[in-house]
Every structure is written in C-alpha cells, then in structure tokens.
Write a protein that binds this DNA or RNA. Structure first.
Length: 350
DNA sequence: AATCCGGGGAG
DNA sequence: CTCCCAGGATT
C-alpha cells in the first residue's frame, strides 16, 4: 500500500479549531488556561493514556479521579501494593494494563528518580508504554514533534487519504504522512486530531461541514467518508462453557480466590469454577454440599463468549484452603472483574 | 503478522 | 444484535 505524495494535514486549521473546541477533560489543561511553556504533569497524562487504551473517555473519567485521589504522584502509586491497584482497576478491563501500570510506576521511581523520561524512545522502554502512549506523553508533556497515531487517527487518516486497504496494512505510510504534518505545539495537535476523530470524524457519521481539514479530505471529495476505513474480515467468536461455584459459610461470608498472575483476568479475584471448554462438562462440585443451580451467566470477552452455570451452597469454612472468606459488605472492595460480579449477583450476592 | 487480552456505550 | 474505543505484550 502506497500513498502517492500524501498532502500534509492543515495543522494550522486544526490548531485553530482546537483552540475553540477543545474538550474539557480531567487530565488536560486547555490551551487557553495554560501559560506559555507550561505542560501537563506527565504522571497524570501517563495514567490517563494507559486507562484510555481501548477504553472510552466516559468510562475512564471516574477511574482517573479515583486513582489520582488515592495516589496523587508516581511515588504514591509505586508505594502502593499491587493488590490495591488491581482492586481499583477492577471493572476497567485489560488487567495487564494495571500490572504494567504498577511496574512502570516502580520503574520510574527506582530507575528514573521519579521523573518520567522526556523522549518517546525512552518512554517506550517502560512496561505498558508502546508506540502510541510513548508518542502521546512525549508530545503532550515534553513538546516532542512526533506523530501520535491512535484508533481515531487511523480512521481520520484513512478517510483523509482514502486508504483502500485495512489500516493495519498502511500503518507505516499513515504514520509518515502524519509525521510530515506535525507542527509546533505537537501536543495540542495530537489532542486536536483525536478530538476531531471523536467528535467530527466519528465512526458512523462524519460532520464534514464542521471539519477543519475537510478541504484536503479525499474521501469527502469521493462522496462518502464513512466507507473508510476498510474493515478486515471479522473473526467469529467461539463459545466456551463451564461451571462456577459460589460457596457461603454459616456467617454468610463468600469464598474467593486469586487467579493466576498472567493470562485472562490475570491476578484478579474469582470464585472457584471448572475449566471452560467448547462443550459443557458434567458438573463436578469442589466439595459435597446441598448445591442449587442459580441460573446462567453470559459474558462476552474479546475473543470468545462465555456461558457459566452458577451453583451455590452453604459449606463449612474449614474444608477449603488457598483462598479467603469475604463478607458481603466487603465484596465491593475486592478485585473482582465484571464477570465474577455477575456470577455473585446470579447467586443473590452484591 | 496474528493472537491474546475486558468492558461498556452508541446506534 | 454490531461496532469499536486515546493499544501493548506475546508468540
């Protein structure tokens, strides 16, 4: 895939639009409220960017507020136990982000005296910081003139250049074209382009009459910008089935345990259960008790759909080891991903 | 280059 | 229902 002599984006028009229409976000300092030479706190920008990976702004806001309230600086976050970070991350998804977030905070404190590296190349060596996040932090916090390419920009540029193949196959060319467009105020330009993608050049609707770069947009000239980007064939989502066991003792406490540190929902909290497989196996209870079937929980992950049969029983606590008993009132503070909150709800808890 | 990895909101 | 979101790590 080659873009033939891609014309740069009109960065001046983009910045002028951003100066008037920048969204007010908790991790952002609007251009109008920022004195010359002032840049946002890299800790806050980093935290927001990691949370925003594959996650919408609306979802992130409350988590960002909670995290910055609990841990106002990278030193505070680095000093926190991983368990408490996972508990606060619960529900946000992609839990490797939380593990890498914690590891990154400790690396910044231990290896960089608590100061985030000031270049995209150095930032990218830290856990959980890849090509996008490193560029975003470098541009927004350190004024590095670097292209910041996220999912919004994939779409905006695919339309602007009428890219005739799935974006993955044109990533290098799009990055080069965007790099050639980066003006002074690279951080504002990056955020402006993302705002533009979120509010004007949206996935299902393009408000081209409001778009500051409409004059150069090839897809608009062709007639229908929303036919870009070209979507690759979608993979089907297989089904996996299993059983989950909610055990309560005489006091009403619930038995919980930790999942393995890596992999799906790694390091998070769960109730015991069977393996998950294509066909539902006969139920094999973890111990003898008066079990009752509490229905089914369906949960959709990125690459499969899970159907869990929910069983509950009252059991004597001394017969279990390896996990812990949690009072129902304390469940809210546990590192329970959404799947297992659904499971507990099906069993009448939460 | 493909695959794994959550969850929710919009339409 | 489908789509996709301020992607990164792993293989």
């Amino acid at each position: 895939m080659q873009l033939s002599h891609p014309a740069p984006v009109d960065a001046s028009a983009v910045l002028a639009w951003y100066d008037r229409h920048a969204r007010d976000l908790p991790w952002r300092i609007a251009p109008a409220d920022r004195v010359a030479g002032q840049f946002p706190d890299p800790y806050r920008v980093w935290l927001s960017e990691v949370m925003l990976q594959q996650t919408t702004v609306a979802t992130v806001k409350s988590y960002f507020t909670r995290f910055t309230s609990l841990w106002p600086t990278v030193f505070d976050l680095a000093a926190a136990p991983l368990d408490s970070v996972l508990k606060e991350w619960a529900g946000l998804g992609y839990y490797a982000r939380a593990r890498n977030l914690h590891a990154c905070a400790r690396a910044v404190v231990n290896d960089h005296a608590g100061k985030f590296p000031a270049t995209s190349a150095a930032l990218q060596t830290l856990p959980g910081i890849g090509s996008y996040t490193s560029a975003a932090i470098a541009a927004i916090c350190f004024d590095e003139p670097i292209a910041v390419l996220d999912g919004n920009l994939d779409r905006v540029l695919a339309r602007y250049y009428a890219v005739a193949v799935p974006v993955r196959e044109a990533k290098d060319e799009l990055r080069a074209a965007l790099q050639a467009s980066v003006p002074a105020r690279a951080g504002d330009f990056a955020q402006a382009m993302m705002d533009l993608g979120a509010t004007i050049c949206a996935p299902r609707a393009a408000a081209c009459l409001l778009c500051p770069i409409q004059p150069g947009c090839i897809a608009t000239r062709q007639g229908d910008p929303t036919r870009y980007p070209i979507k690759p064939a979608k993979a089907d989502r297989p089904v996996r089935k299993g059983h989950a066991f909610v055990m309560v003792d005489h006091a009403g406490d619930v038995y919980l345990q930790s999942r393995p540190a890596k992999g799906l929902l790694g390091g998070m909290t769960e109730v015991p259960g069977s393996d998950w497989s294509a066909e539902l196996a006969d139920v094999s209870y973890p111990l003898a008790a008066d079990w009752s079937h509490r229905g089914q929980v369906v949960h959709v992950f990125t690459h499969f759909r899970l159907e869990l049969e929910i069983w509950s029983a009252q059991v004597p606590p001394e017969t279990l080891a390896g996990g812990w008993w949690s009072e129902p009132a304390a469940l809210r503070g546990e590192a329970l991903p959404t799947l297992f909150r659904k499971v507990l709800a099906a069993a009448g808890l939460e």
